[in-house]
Amino acid sequence: MYRIRFHGRGGQGMKTASRILGTAFFLQGYEVQDAPRYGAERRGAPIFAYVRADETPINERGIITQADLVIVADDSLVPVPGAGVLAGVDKHTVILINSDESPEVWKQRLNISGKVFTLPVETEDRAELRFIGATCTGAAAKLLGVITRESLSQAIEEELGDLGHAVVEKNLHKALTAFDLMKKHAGCVSTMEKTSAANYTRPAWVELPFEDARISAPSIHAAANSVQVKTGLWRTQRPVIDYEHCSGCWWVCSTFCPDGAINVTEQGLPDIDYDHCKGCMVCVAQCPPHAIHAIAEEVAQAEEAKGGQA
């Protein structure tokens, strides 16, 4: 059985990508399961989707903890613990990352011995981001090696037909380009050995003793402790204030920032909390003297790493 796990951010079309891949498998005659994980399906938040495909009926259910192919639509998710990109990855797992960095860099960074492929990020234009799913699916179909160009195209037409001709065409183009790009690596994804009951060793369970309700009941006694959640990791673009042009106005950015992540300092100047700014760019759009501009998060982080000011 093939087990495939998609990682992306809400809004990047991972659910659709998993459906397209599932349908393509189905058209090849496979038994298929495809499902997104239901939860915080909000834009920018880590999203998971799963596909299982087998020649015989599938009895396995639930999330995929050990995948044969892991697809990462957004490389900024790799270091996010909650995204669990590396969960259950072993040397047989193939990883496909949408990233400008080379596969070697990722292998070294993550200390993994399995195969890594990258799909170069083509664009900074956020309008194009919605086609990442198609690109990833196209590449994945080729890596799996059991899906034809025709099945992939038909799956896209079936799944996206509702959205109109132009959308289908654009997705087809993206998916087929990626499909062809992976030609040399066709069929490199292998399936895991079947777990047999005979040599099964049970995982090391953690025993949790039954606790008094006053200890185990979910009451939160801290105020505003959500600040411990670093939503700054969602960001793909970073707003940067140019204080020379900031007029110290009537606090437009601070009031409009949906997250309340901009506070005004005692000097009367706005200050962006990058631990929590989700990168919506409302402040960039609203600042009256246009004193806030957007830079790619990657670039900002590279600058910071060099010790410079972003």
């Binding site: 809400g10 915080a40 909000r42 834009r43 920018g44 938040a45 105020a223 505003a224 402790n225 959500s226 600040v227 411990q228 959640v229 670093k230 939503t231 969602w234 601070s254 949906p258 997250d259 309340g260 992540a261 506070n263 909390d273 631990d275 929590h276 989700k278 990168g279 919506c280 760019m281 409302v282």
Partner: peptide, 12 residues
């Protein structure tokens, strides 16, 4: 602002 940051509401 009083409301804590770090909530899982969508960006924007």
């Amino acid at each position: 602002h009083l409301l804590g940051t770090g909530t899982p509401m969508c960006s924007g």
